[in-house]
Amino acid sequence: MGVKELVRKYAVSPFLAYIPLVIIGLILPLAITDDFFIRIIVLTFFYIMYSSSWNLLAYSGQASLGHAAFLGIGGFASTILIINGASPVVGVLTGALTASLVGLFLGIICVRLKEWFLGLVTFGFAIIMVAIVNESSVFIEALNGALGFIGLSGSIDPHIFGGSLGIFSPDLVPRDQYYYLFFFAMMATILATHLIIKSKIGFAFAAIRENQIEAAMMGVDITKYKLIAFIISTFIAGFAGALFAPYNYFINPEMFSVHNSFMPIIMTISGGIGTIGGPVIGALTINLIWEQMGLWGMSIDRLLILGVILVLEILFLPKGLMPLIKKVINRISKVMGLTSRDMPL
């Protein structure tokens, strides 16, 4: 039996083709000594999770303009628990659940709203969260208000953090603890969004997005599925925020910033809105461009460039990079005498 047959036999799922990518992901920290580069990659993993969460909500026709609210709620809830003695696993999961619960509450408000009404309410909700967190210390001193929580790497030891998950060897340096933590969290997120979008739930989301009235006529329970979208999406956002806070050493109300709300939108649109691969490709390209521009000492310029990218994409590339990438691959495949089926992107 030749190699080709072997591969054909065992490559039952196109997903197996991603195994090399996973392997690269697994060995990357061993091959790279540059700590800052690893940091950029970890941030990319974080943005992939966060953008996927935004994308899932948008997939159901609900585009949030204030998703940072849930990033922050997850981060704050988890941080407060962990520095008060909860185990990191409990902290992170509770953080994500809290975000999800608040998401359900906001979802109930938003269920009747469309497009920009929804955009305004979600945008406003992030602003309201800033006020609540800023003023929290007036009621409970320990919540620190605008100061947030600093020096989390002191309080939340990454060894405990990763070690208590029971996956990582305690010998790993903190850098790699975090790397693998984010890597597996990202993998889980992508897998989960894939399963959801390909399931009955995902079908209902798409139906609602395309035409709410028709979807209702087909028997889709609009309210239920819109709320499900909110619950899942905000859970992932809260999860990402809960992991991000200790990695970034601190958390403060800046987490709720408008920029943090807009970033997943720009990334998802760049990749391709409403696809599973879109947020991945988008977060990867935009974050690498973003950090590279940072290395070149750009600060205002890179925000400007981000705006230009967004406008150009809306005008000329509304489906993002995904179709382009597929096209390039198809072209190459054709040249090489191969025909390529649709990728599970």
């Binding site: 920009w116 955009g119 705006g307 230009v308 406008v311």
Partner: peptide, 15 residues
């Protein structure tokens, strides 16, 4: 698309 275009314009004009 209108919303996203205006977000892009916010970034461009402001910065």
């Amino acid at each position: 698309n209108e919303i996203f275009l205006s977000l892009g314009l916010i970034y461009i004009i402001q910065n």
